[in-house]
Amino acid sequence: MSLISKCLTSAAIAGAIAAASASVTAPAAAAEQEKCYGVALKGQNDCAAGSHSCAGHSTVDYDGQSFKLVPAGTCTTMETPNGMGSLEPKST
């Protein structure tokens, strides 16, 4: 029996379960929540393939191959200047 097993006796587990059960109130009954079947999540059913959007009418979309773009959305304001994130090259 490992050291950890000794710590986790059935009494300890029972205590943890009791503490856990006592601290949780029942979530709202599922019956009170009604999922709206048939209502598509935005962007999933309303993006019908072959729809004649203006964007799709041109013969050539902007050139995604010459990839000069850099991320320009909220990432530019969200990260801490000294965070390890934005400047760290990916390891993969």
Binding site: L41, K42, G43, Q44, D46, C47, A48, A49, G50, S51, H52, S53, A55, G56, H57, S58, T59, V60, D61
Partner: peptide, 16 residues
Amino acid sequence: VYRNNVVSALGNAIAG
């Protein structure tokens, strides 16, 4: 035009 529509529509699905 057809090719662009297909690629554009699938891109819309990803965007959504």
